[in-house]
């Protein structure tokens, strides 16, 4: 494993040739391990009820937004619209609320999603192994859970109240999901929350731990940068594009087979350039508000964060093809998940 000092040295090396050399290595390894393919997914926000107060999030419990959660019928309507764009990998998202979006609610949403999608993943509050097991046997294959930051002091500062305050319970979440049988686990840090060097290092350590304990899981990492929310700045990310790319390339070189996701929070130009350098999965045509696809007007929407890449799925597909990649809608067809 790389050391903290080595990461530090790399991230502070401002020579363009260092970055170019790293990017070339990353590109070669990405092509070797993932071929000339890019997977696609889209998020669907089911609920913005949240019992946690995270200072940087548009859904946090004290933020004065209209709280809603989709009914089964509304979920179906949103999914119909996403399905029509061609997307077959869906990420179900909620705020963190055991009360409003308990496992029974998530199961129901997953059951509906099975009618539309081949790959179902969730990004919701951390749960117990038995709850993940219930969702796995319902048809959920993936779990996304970011530690946000591995800096415990900073973690306490930005996660003021709610379940999310419990650092250790959150850190053990990927292990509980893996123990339940979940096939794909996405981990990550929120860039801009704390010292980037330490966070990247700790994330790599966490991933190594997971690889050793649960080698069969397909892992991916994300490095979301903090965004404005409805134009307002809640927290500022000081990670520039060069550092961001360095982090992605370093990840690829150290973890050649680990997936790297890139959401629409990044701007189109950067997204286009990052294809194949290390990125293996991109979201497309995303809306980050509950009911944002079909139920609410733009003015009425309360997004979790502002997206930068507003291109449609068709436009993203055309772009991927023009770059010489095969857009993959179905990564893995589902097989019946058994406990």
């Amino acid at each position: 494993m790389i050391s903290l000092t080595q990461i530090q040295k790399l991230l502070t090396d401002s020579r363009p040739e260092t970055l170019e050399a790293l990017a070339k290595d990353a590109q070669r390894l990405t092509e070797q391990n993932f071929g000339r393919t890019i997977s696609l997914y889209a998020p669907v926000y089911l609920s913005n009820y949240c019992s946690s107060h995270c200072t940087y999030c548009g859904f946090h419990s004290l933020n004065k937004i209209k709280r809603i959660k989709l009914t089964g019928e509304e979920t179906r309507k949103e999914m119909t619209a996403i399905h029509a764009t061609g997307i077959r990998n869906i990420l179900l998202l909620t705020g963190e609320s055991y009360k409003f979006t308990p496992v029974s609610y998530l199961k129901e949403a997953a059951m509906i999603a099975k009618d539309f999608f081949q790959g179902i993943a969730i990004e919701v509050h951390p749960m117990q192994t038995s709850e993940y097991q219930e969702l796995y046997t319902t048809g959920v294959d993936g779990v996304t859970i970011y530690q946000e930051t591995y800096d415990k002091v900073r973690y306490t500062e930005v996660h003021i109240s709610g379940y999310k305050k419990d650092y250790d319970f959150r850190r053990e979440t990927p292990a509980r999901a893996a123990a339940a049988g979940i096939r794909q686990i996405s981990m990550g840090i929120l860039l801009g929350l704390s010292d980037v060097t330490r966070d990247v290092y700790e994330l790599f350590c966490h991933l190594r731990e997971m690889e050793k304990s649960f080698p069969g899981v397909e892992y991916s990492l994300s490095f979301p940068r903090l965004r404005t929310i409805k134009g307002r700045e809640f927290a500022i990310c000081d990670i520039d594009d060069r550092t961001f790319l360095k982090i992605l390339c370093l990840t690829r070189v150290l973890f050649p087979r680990v997936g790297l996701n890139l959401s629409t929070r990044e701007h189109p130009k950067l997204r286009d350039h990052l294809l194949g350098i290390g990125i293996t999965k991109v979201s497309a045509g995303s809306n980050t508000a509950v009911g944002g696809y079909t139920l609410k007007t733009i003015e009425d929407q309360d997004p979790q964060f502002d997206t930068e890449d507003k291109r449609s799925v068709a436009e993203i597909v055309a772009m991927i093809k023009s770059k010489g990649f095969d857009p993959v809608f179905t990564d893995w067809r589902p097989i019946e998940n058994k406990a």
Binding site: R88, Q118, V328, F329, T330, D331, W332, R333, I335
Partner: peptide, 12 residues
């Protein structure tokens, strides 16, 4: 790979 066959998208 059976699990990679995209039955939904004719072109794919």
């Amino acid at each position: 790979a059976l699990r990679r066959i995209d039955l939904d998208h004719h072109e794919e």
